[in-house]
């Protein structure tokens, strides 16, 4: 019984070990290991043990994405000024920090996504977890924006905003992977511009007045 606590830490260690060994393997070989069996033999764990944490390699890739995301969030939340931000600034800060976190893993990500690339339409399986996490976060930010009236409430459309912001995540990732500028300054600009564009669209605009006006004309015919 007294062994429960140390066992728990070793569990976490093992999961982390699998993730970091997997990253290392990709970094050194430029591709995923041929089989779970070979990978386990290399890092000296039993194959059965591997499955206790991950069903396959894709799940590890997914874990890496989620880890980057949760690191980003904890960095953001540690920043006292973050809570004072408007929704627009929160999202900007999120992307800047996220790209910084991605930078730590650039070679790994390049090895996976530069050769194969992200499929343009269907979402790679390993991104599902990250997508859910991100959308939950985005919903929160958007809700705050609605409360502060930074974001206009529009029937049907408002519910889709988190999806739209997710598309932005993918856009920025693709942009950053291809970015050749020093210090990825172009990506910074892409963030600044795309977020501002998105928020200008989501905010009250001429479009709302137009719909309102059109409705009025239609009703008073």
């Amino acid at each position: 019984m007294e062994k429960v606590a140390p066992k728990k830490t070793s569990k976490v260690d093992k999961r982390a070990k699998i993730i970091s060994s997997f990253k290392m393997y990709i970094l050194e070989n430029g591709k995923a290991p041929v089989s779970v069996f070979k990978f386990c033999r290399d890092i000296k764990i039993k194959e059965a043990e591997f499955y206790a944490y991950f069903p396959n390699f894709n799940a590890i890739k997914g874990a890496v994405w989620q880890e980057i995301f949760s690191n980003t969030l904890s960095i953001l939340r540690a920043e006292p000024v973050y809570n004072e931000y408007s929704s627009r600034e929160k999202l900007l800060a999120f992307f800047y920090t996220w790209i910084e976190e991605l930078k730590h893993n650039r070679s790994y990500l390049l090895a996976i996504y530069d050769t194969e690339g992200l499929p343009p339409k269907s979402l790679p399986e390993e991104l599902r977890g990250f997508r859910e996490d991100f959308k939950a976060y985005a919903k929160e930010v958007i809700k705050e924006g609605e409360e502060s009236e930074e974001i206009a409430q529009r029937p049907y459309i408002t519910d889709k905003y988190d999806e739209a912001v997710w598309l932005q995540v993918m856009f920025l990732f693709r942009f950053w992977i291809k970015d050749q500028s020093a210090g990825f300054e172009k990506t910074d600009q892409a963030i600044e511009k795309s977020v501002n564009f998105a928020f200008d669209l989501m905010g009250k605009s001429a479009l709302d007045s137009f719909v309102d006006f059109a409705k009025f004309l239609y009703q008073s015919r």
């Binding site: 920043e79 006292p80 000024v81 004072e84 931000y85 627009r88 600034e89 900007l92 800060a93 800047y96 910084e100 210090g183 910074d188 963030i191 600044e192 501002n196």
Partner: peptide
């Protein structure tokens, strides 16, 4: 002006610290 998160980002890039960590006060 430009957004504050971009200012923070620029500071992080060159000093590894945010403006709040470097200065006692810093206008948003």
């Amino acid at each position: 002006p430009l957004s504050y998160p971009l200012v923070v980002k620029t500071f992080m890039k060159y000093f590894g610290k945010s403006p709040d960590q470097i200065f006692d006060t810093f206008s948003r």
